[in-house]
Each structure stands twice: as structure tokens, then as C-alpha cells.
Design a protein around this nucleic acid. Structure first.
Length: 199
DNA sequence: TCATTGATGCGCT
DNA sequence: GCGCATCAATGAT
């Protein structure tokens, strides 16, 4: 059974729409000929130059350049010297926005994920956080600015739609540096009751 | 609660 | 250029 690869039109929708719509979709990573995949269960939106939680709010730099580019590309960066964060760029060119993938329900390649996530035993802890899922799926700087609509190395496939009534919203995590009004925005989304969301 | 870890960006020479 | 504070997190304690 084949799944449709999610195309650029999907990422061209408004950022908050994309952040919601990503829940239930499958993130697929090909490593050494093996499919590693999981269903997205948690996301966060980072929207525009006025969102002080958005890295791009401080202006256009080498690091944030990709967010000013076309939708459907990855923004991957290193945080705390050891963890990679995977974001998917949204909105038309020159408007900086992206959605952070925060957690997956692992589906394919769990044994390999366990190997890449040295020390993680229960499968619930393989991908229940943005740093963890990057480790499990071997996502690093080499996948920065990658077009996920090609269907190679890293892409998304259509999964089961998740209705709005099955989605919970909340404030975003780890943005204490942002303005209070931005910290309070309900721009974090997760599938209600999923065991695989971050803690 | 705390140590880890290195790229990034800012403020200065 | 150079030094320094900061960080879309995690795991151990």
C-alpha cells in the first residue's frame, strides 16, 4: 500500500492550518535503504516577524534565511549544543514562518530508532520530543534546507485525518525569552490523549 | 534541580 | 575579529 506524498500546496496553507493539519500525517526518513517513520502527534507554529518566539523575528540571517524562502523546505538547527530541531517552512517567500515537529508516534523501523537513540528502551520514549525524534530519525544539519516534496531522504505521507475535536491546543514550550503576549499564544497543537506527546 | 554542549548573534575592539 | 551570553532540550540525580 502506497501513501500519497504531501506536496507544496499543503505547506502553502496558512501556518496555523498547517500546524493542525500535520497532526496525523506520517513523517518518513530513509536511512541506508530502510524506512523510518512515525505519525506526527505534536507541533508548534512560529509565525512571522512579529512573533518574538520565532528565530526569524530578529531579522534575516544565515541561520534563518530558509524561513524567508518557499514553503515545503526544512529548517534544521542545533540547540543546546546537542539536539537538532526539525521545522517545516510555511508561507510564501519573504514571509518567515515554520512549524516545529515536536513528537511522533513511531511506526516503521523501531529497532533502528532504538539503536540510534542509545539508551531509550520503551518505544514511547523514542520520539516523544523534538530532540529525540531527530536522533531516532537521524536528522541533522545535512537535512537543513531540504525540500520535503521530492520524496527522497525525508518526506511526508498522507495519514489519517485528525478532526479539530481531537486536537488540544496550548502555549509553546521553551520560549521564556519571548514577549509575554507571544508566550501566551495557543500555537502548540497535539492529539488529545496521545501517549507519544512530549512531557 | 542541574550539567551537558556548540552554533549563533551581539557588542565591543 | 574576539569574547561572551543565550538557547523551540534531555537525561541523570
Amino acid at each position: 500500500m502506497t501513501h500519497k506524498i504531501i506536496d507544496r500546496d499543503f505547506f502553502s496553507q496558512p501556518t496555523l492550518t498547517v500546524a493542525r493539519a500535520l497532526l496525523g500525517q506520517r513523517l518518513v526518513r530513509m536511512v541506508k535503504g530502510e524506512r523510518l517513520s512515525g505519525v506526527i502527534v505534536e507541533s508548534e507554529a512560529y509565525f512571522g516577524p512579529d512573533d518574538t518566539a520565532n528565530h526569524a523575528s530578529k531579522g534575516r540571517t544565515a541561520r534563518t534565511e530558509v524561513m524567508f524562502g518557499p514553503p515545503g523546505r526544512t529548517y534544521v538547527y542545533l540547540i543546546y549544543g546537542m539536539y537538532y530541531m526539525l521545522n517545516l517552512v510555511t508561507e510564501p517567500e519573504s514571509f518567515p514562518a515554520a512549524v516545529l515537529i515536536r513528537a511522533l508516534e513511531p511506526v516503521e523501523g523501531l529497532n533502528s530508532m532504538r539503536r540510534y537513540r542509545q539508551g531509550a528502551k520503551p518505544s514511547v520514549s523514542l520520539t516523544n520530543g523534538p530532540g529525540k525524534l531527530s536522533q531516532a530519525l537521524q536528522i541533522d544539519k545535512t537535512l537543513h534546507n531540504w525540500d520535503v516534496t521530492f520524496g527522497q531522504r525525508l518526506w511526508l505521507e498522507q495519514g489519517q485525518p485528525v478532526s479539530d475535536s481531537a486536537i488540544t491546543t496550548g502555549s509553546r514550550v521553551g520560549i521564556s525569552y519571548a514577549a509575554p503576549k507571544d508566550q501566551a499564544l495557543p500555537w502548540r497543537f497535539w492529539i488529545s490523549g496521545s501517549k507519544f506527546v512530549s512531557r
